[in-house]
Nucleic acid binder design. Structure first.
Lengths: 209, 209
DNA sequence: GTCTATAACCGGATAGAC
DNA sequence: GTCTATCCGGTTATAGAC
């Protein structure tokens, strides 16, 4: 029973891996079965089809990501020096536990799968109201000189862009800079530091001529 | 003759589009033919196979991108206030002319295609020496207080991350924020401004308490 | 160079035994 | 719940006429 007891979960795990690596179209049911240590037919015992399997795994992961985003955006006092390090850390931590998720989302987002469309729609409609709150908080922070005069939406995009980058291009980067990627934990820590530093202070020195 | 004269080029253009949208595995030779206004057989008249077609288009685009990177990195004086706006503008301009390229690269980079592997290897080995030069230039700039004490490699990653972001997640963003994406030119200009502003100054105000 | 028809193959899905 | 054997549709690729 040790391994065999939760075949369904092992299939889900294998599915996430293979879809993340190969994309929906490139994924083979046979490979998913192999990695789960199962017979191909077993997948069809638990899931109706490849499409249904994908939808289940994608929905689950996408929901988890947006749950994180929503909890992250519940910020009371917008002082960048306090908030930014927290935000970056939470997001990177989540991503390092789901490293294949960004590539999967990016790959499959324009697949035409109606479930995916609906998921994006509903996630972002909730996200919209959160964003409005953030706008107001940031406007206050700007007036009180705790924050430079920046656009809230662009700022959110910037954080996300910087955070997801290494996960999205990991295959390129680890081939191009093997030294930096030899120790994944160390690399992630350095990346986190660099992102926070950029977000807070930019490149131009404080004391100018 | 008007349209028909350079069928080969139209096939290449259609290929880039379809591979960008659907990925290698999702792309259908029939759809490429349709978009090129050609018969499917014509593709095989000009290219040996789907694989060969992909390799040709990928190599070409990837080479163009790295040519840009190399020309961009030939920077004499590293004063961020001068260099950053130029870098960001050149990169975004290139990307807006090849909007499908980042997604295509990210999708296909771990495909196992040996041509892709070799391309990445050779591109980055040349990039490596450029990076060494950049390190030295930046070290000087830091000593002379024109630049904050930042890591050169991380800084390059940051610029690339911020620049490619909207192209990579465009399908999500245009669905989630239709207003912002209604006018593509205006959106790109605002994005450029936001990236340069962040890179230079970060979020923390200059004059502190 | 361009087309129609078709071969060859592959991968998702199912039937049915145990 | 798990397995073997097989079907069927779709996709790349080619043969061969014009």
């Amino acid at each position: 029973m040790s391994d065999r007891e939760n075949m369904r979960d092992r299939i889900k795990q294998a599915t996430a891996e293979v879809f993340g690596e190969r994309g929906y179209d490139g994924a083979r049911m046979q490979e998913i079965a192999d990695r789960a240590g199962a017979n191909k037919t077993m997948i069809y015992y638990y899931f109706a089809s490849k499409e249904a399997l994908f939808t289940a795994i994608f929905s689950e992961n996408f929901a988890a990501l947006f749950q994180l985003f929503n909890s992250i955006l519940q910020v009371e006092a917008v002082d960048p020096k306090v908030v930014i390090p927290q935000l970056v850390h939470l997001h990177l931590d989540f991503l390092s536990r789901n490293p294949e998720l960004p590539r999967m989302i990016i790959r499959e987002i324009q697949s035409g799968n109606p479930v995916v469309e609906k998921l994006v729609q509903s996630s972002f409609s909730r996200f919209g109201s959160q964003l409005q709150t953030l706008r107001e908080e940031m406007a206050v922070a700007i007036r009180e000189k705790r924050l430079r005069e920046v656009d809230p939406l662009q700022t959110v995009w910037n954080i996300v862009a910087l955070n997801i980058f290494i996960f999205i291009v990991r295959p390129i980067l680890s081939a191009a800079f093997p030294d930096e990627f030899a120790d994944a934990g160390r690399m992630l820590a350095e990346r986190e530091k660099a992102i926070v530093d950029l977000m807070l202070y930019g490149l131009v020195p404080r004391q100018e001529a």
